[in-house]
Amino acid sequence: MMAVESDKVTADVVEVSEFPHIAQRYRIYAVPKVVIDETLEFEGARPEEAFIAAVESVAGGPAEEGGSSRGDDGR
């Protein structure tokens, strides 16, 4: 849904059981797993607000220029 609303968002739904190399690359041990810009990841469903906050922490909003507030899952 986020990619429908923003031209900045590319959203992929990846059926990972077909692509073992992707599962290995992203260390998929449980689904759903979300990876945002290769920098922030989390497993399991999250409420809309938390998901949006995670995206904002990576892609930056006007109040957080530079994406300085990576979430707890950030690496």
Binding site: K8, V14, S17, E38
Partner: peptide
């Protein structure tokens, strides 16, 4: 919030 994103972002959701 999405409308104000400053940079492109790639979201991958891995499922089975």
């Amino acid at each position: 919030i999405l409308g104000k994103l400053a940079r492109p972002v790639h979201i991958q959701v891995f499922v089975t």
